[in-house]
Write a protein that binds this DNA or RNA. Structure first.
Lengths: 191, 191
DNA sequence: TACCTAATGTGAGCGGCGTTCACATGGTAC
DNA sequence: GTACCATGTGAACGCCGCTCACATTAGGTA
């Protein structure tokens, strides 16, 4: 016999909140991400999420951490082990594409300095910078790894945000790809 | 006889709102910027600002436009007519410093795609990119101006945001300066 | 099996927010 | 001097983050 009323306890509200938050971000942008909306979508009272997240920022941090892992997956999917500048440009383009395709999530990931939740969120960030470092090490054995991967992250991150903010036209994917390729080669050719 | 009560009409509420908003940003960060707080600080009813700004975003756009002009001034103050890579690096450092010193304003400037208020805000943005273009033209006469200044803007913008978000340590100004110099030279030396 | 406790969800309520609207005020043009 | 129009007021709506006393239930213990 199917129970008509939902059970008192949700089951796994903690992860349900993150899923709901991701959906809300996709559907309505950053502005749509409210704890109350998350609770509504999870079919739960407005105060329930506070059992699992101290405040809104804590939930946002959890969402950001998921975003970092998805971004890392997206990058490795573009090229598992890049070993040339062209491979590297493909990864750079993936970074920018991720930002353009999921702007609200990307903004959430980089909206605040992540003082709190340093364990989870900082760790997730480190995945990306470690991946970047390993690429640079493989492509440019003699180079100053820290300097070069910082510069590379900066170009890519800057390109992502400038597209997101409409400073660079992002409607034609081929134009985006050309820009990213040009920037990466400008930075790395001749090294 | 001094009038005890403030006059019914403010005088120039339009610009007073922008000033109040800038103060609130400096004092309490992005979160402190609310239309009601702006009205309070201007000594006016919560609904009064709506006579001058259609909604919160419109005020934010006006604030962002002021921010762009202040950023442009800050850059030209760093170096009026850069003609070498070192001059250029000084301008780049000024860009990053502006972001670090006025994080809330910087975030507001790049928080949303500026579809609306395209006149004012886009124009203010163009001041910066035109300045960048002129620098690149002067320093690298034969180069592809658009590509090079886009790449340069991206590095600098990316460095600014990565510092702002705590991905790069920003507490020691000399470390920031070294990073920016290294990145600019990596991108432009040998051109 | 029966209880007890700790974890989890509820519902009401606080103050703040953005926004709207009917109304008050007063400078300006005729 | 009067009529008009821009500007400011105050109350109100619904949404928000957040808190707290209370209800429910899962899971360990006797």
């Amino acid at each position: 016999m199917p129970q008509a009323t939902s059970p008192y306890h949700h089951g796994d509200l903690r992860v349900a909140c993150v899923h709901a938050a991701l959906e809300l971000l996709e559907e309505g942008g950053t502005a749509a991400l409210s704890l109350r909306a998350v609770a509504r979508r999870a079919g739960v009272a407005p105060s329930a999420p506070y059992r699992h997240y101290a405040d809104r920022d804590a939930l946002v941090s959890a969402v950001a951490a998921v975003g970092y892992r998805q971004l890392a997956d997206y990058l490795t999917a573009a090229h598992a082990e890049p070993s040339s500048v062209d491979d590297l440009a493909a990864v750079a383009l993936a970074y920018v594409r991720f930002a353009i395709e999921r702007p609200a999530l990307f903004r959430v990931m980089f909206s605040e300095p992540c003082d709190r939740d340093s364990g989870n969120r900082v760790a997730a960030t480190n995945i990306i910078s470690a991946y970047l470092d390993s690429i640079v090490r493989r492509c440019f054995p003699g180079a100053d790894v820290a300097a070069l991967s910082t510069a590379l992250w900066a170009v890519v991150h800057g390109l992502a945000f400038l597209h997101l903010d409409g400073k660079l036209e992002a409607s034609r994917p081929s134009a985006v790809a050309d820009r990213v390729h040009a920037a990466v080669h400008a930075l790395l050719d001749g090294r």
